[in-house]
Simulated scan of single mutants.
Amino acid sequence: MQTLNLIALSDGLYLDAFVQDEHDEVIFLSLWARDGDMQHFFAALTLPITQGGYRERTVNLPNGQSHTLHLNRVSDMKKMTTRLPKYTPVGEWVHTWLMLPALTKTPHGSQEAWLISPTALDWNALWPTVKNLCHLPLLDSWQPYLAPLLGNAPMVNTLTAWGLHAYHLHFEPEVIEPLIADAVKTKTLPLTLVQ
């Protein structure tokens, strides 16, 4: 049986994973609590701060660092909940996932994708998504050359996360077209196929 690594978000409320976007806003949250504590959490997110509501929480990570979770996008997030059986060592707990709807969509016809993985994804693992998102035809022989170009643009971002690994890929035509064109002109991207 897999052991959960839970960290306290507040009294009676725990999380085992979160992801933040480039603006440090939470876009994925995996929460564990008894039903009453979970309902209290969601109520606090809707209340004005002057009435006891909150829009951010600080958590202590297992490595000893404290980390602030900004929760301003929670109203945009999709909620999925499951219940543990009543007769467990911890009693009846609720497991809730909050996530932006974009995290559950296949990015066909889009230049943007969000990827979440239990393990880190290297450039080789990201490459099929890069090719699928880019509206320009990309040669497989360009793969090693494009990694630094797209990372420096930046079009491939590693997001702040705990318990998971997350990436945001975003290819704006007005940015990537001149970048690819210049790289072809300067022969940074070779046009001959590598055998």
Results as ranks from 00 to 15, higher is better:
1 M>G: 03
3 T>N: 07
6 L>V: 15
7 I>W: 13
7 I>K: 03
8 A>V: 12
8 A>M: 12
13 L>Y: 05
13 L>M: 11
15 L>M: 09
19 V>T: 08
22 E>L: 03
26 V>A: 11
28 F>W: 12
29 L>A: 05
29 L>Y: 12
29 L>V: 09
34 R>A: 03
37 D>N: 07
38 M>C: 10
39 Q>V: 15
41 F>D: 00
42 F>S: 04
43 A>T: 04
45 L>C: 05
47 L>D: 01
48 P>S: 13
49 I>D: 06
55 R>T: 09
58 T>I: 10
59 V>K: 11
63 N>P: 13
66 S>A: 12
67 H>L: 12
70 H>F: 15
80 M>T: 12
82 T>M: 15
83 R>P: 00
84 L>W: 12
84 L>V: 10
91 G>V: 00
94 V>A: 13
94 V>T: 09
96 T>S: 04
99 M>P: 06
101 P>T: 11
105 K>V: 14
105 K>H: 11
105 K>M: 00
111 Q>D: 02
114 W>D: 00
114 W>F: 10
118 P>Y: 11
120 A>D: 03
120 A>P: 00
120 A>Q: 09
124 N>K: 09
125 A>F: 08
129 T>G: 13
130 V>P: 01
132 N>S: 07
134 C>M: 15
135 H>D: 07
137 P>D: 08
137 P>W: 10
141 S>T: 15
141 S>Q: 14
142 W>V: 05
148 P>S: 04
148 P>W: 11
148 P>M: 07
149 L>V: 06
149 L>D: 02
150 L>R: 13
151 G>Y: 03
151 G>D: 01
157 N>A: 08
157 N>E: 04
177 E>P: 11
177 E>T: 04
178 P>T: 11
179 L>N: 00
181 A>H: 02
181 A>N: 02
181 A>K: 02
181 A>P: 03
185 K>Y: 05
186 T>A: 14
188 T>R: 09
192 T>R: 00
193 L>D: 05
195 Q>C: 14
